[in-house]
Nucleic acid binder design. Sequence first.
DNA 1: TACGATACGGAGAACGTCTCCGCTTGGCTA
DNA 2: TAGCCAAGCGGAGACGTTCTCCGTATCGTA
Lengths: 196, 196
Amino acid sequence: MTTGHGDARHSPRRTDARLNRERLLAAAQEVFAEDGPGASLNEIARRAGVGPGTLYRHFPNRQALLTAVLRDRIQALCGEAERSRALYSADDALSRWLGAFLAHARANQGMGSALMVDEPGAPGLDCHRLILDAAAGLLARAQREGTARGDLTAGDLIQLVTGIALSTARGEDPEQAHRLLALVLDAVYGAPRRKG
Amino acid sequence: MTTGHGDARHSPRRTDARLNRERLLAAAQEVFAEDGPGASLNEIARRAGVGPGTLYRHFPNRQALLTAVLRDRIQALCGEAERSRALYSADDALSRWLGAFLAHARANQGMGSALMVDEPGAPGLDCHRLILDAAAGLLARAQREGTARGDLTAGDLIQLVTGIALSTARGEDPEQAHRLLALVLDAVYGAPRRKG
DNA sequence: TACGATACGGAGAACGTCTCCGCTTGGCTA
DNA sequence: TAGCCAAGCGGAGACGTTCTCCGTATCGTA
């Protein structure tokens, strides 16, 4: 893995700038977790101990900041897909990973989902493609070696699970997301049913 | 049908007030359709030709305005459930109505969905229950007379379709929502699959 | 140590939500 | 028809948020 690739792209030359960037990411992680993806960027800057201008120089908009915060986790999530692939059967690997993806999207109060849904800039695309590729790999294998139905694209699958995350993100029933995912998985593994 | 019931509850005594309320609703319908549920309330007031204060007296918050705008459509939607019930088989009635519900939620850019997800105040509850009851009626019949699986609640079903609406509301592929709904319907009518 | 590029920070413009209160106006009563 | 008064209007303005601009401070280098 090219360790320096993703990081070097955004790391400033001066050490104080790099430090501020890290402080901003840490603060953003906190505040987003508390107040959701619509949290005040001013508050993030304040908690990071920098001015608003500094925040906006490092991250030109909310989306860029969200993407940066989630980048590591999403990379980890997609790495998990590889491991899942090695450990479990084709169907189980897909199911488990979708569960992890759902948990991730929900834990971030739809932030990750926001990345999938809204994509105003290029930064979101990275994560979108990353997730899409991970899902596509698992799905293709489940279609080849498992029982997943063939007429299903990774994009649709991700969109559906993203929808579950979005609609249950603020709900009070913590089990609901699991039930809905199980329902969807039933469809994924069930034979396509022709409609008369 | 008690025609005056829902209307009388909110109609002001003075005619100018009632007129302003109607103007506000019309403007809100326009602006929400253009800019989504996060549209500027000031802009709505401006386009209605009233001051912001007037808007906030009639509708204390965004949610109340959203609810009022959607109220008629939601009532119509739920009325459609009754008609569907009479015209089609149990399964078809459910499928068709869910399709209509999805179209409604998407057409409103997640407004209707916002009603389902966020419910800070009582006004949202009306619509939520209305929709839930309509869905529950159709689902119960499809479970009794049709092939819908028994371990499924109307709440879960609505939440799932709401999720489709949310995640596809801003998407560019207009067919995706239909595909996702079809997939979900496969699960609804497929036999529950026990997981080892 | 001195210099120049780099980055900081906060003032402030623009916009949004929502409130308050003095003025207007509709509808009832005589 | 005239007059009263409560219901209702509207916009100024307090306050929060996003995002920009530019004078100033600081880092890294020579």
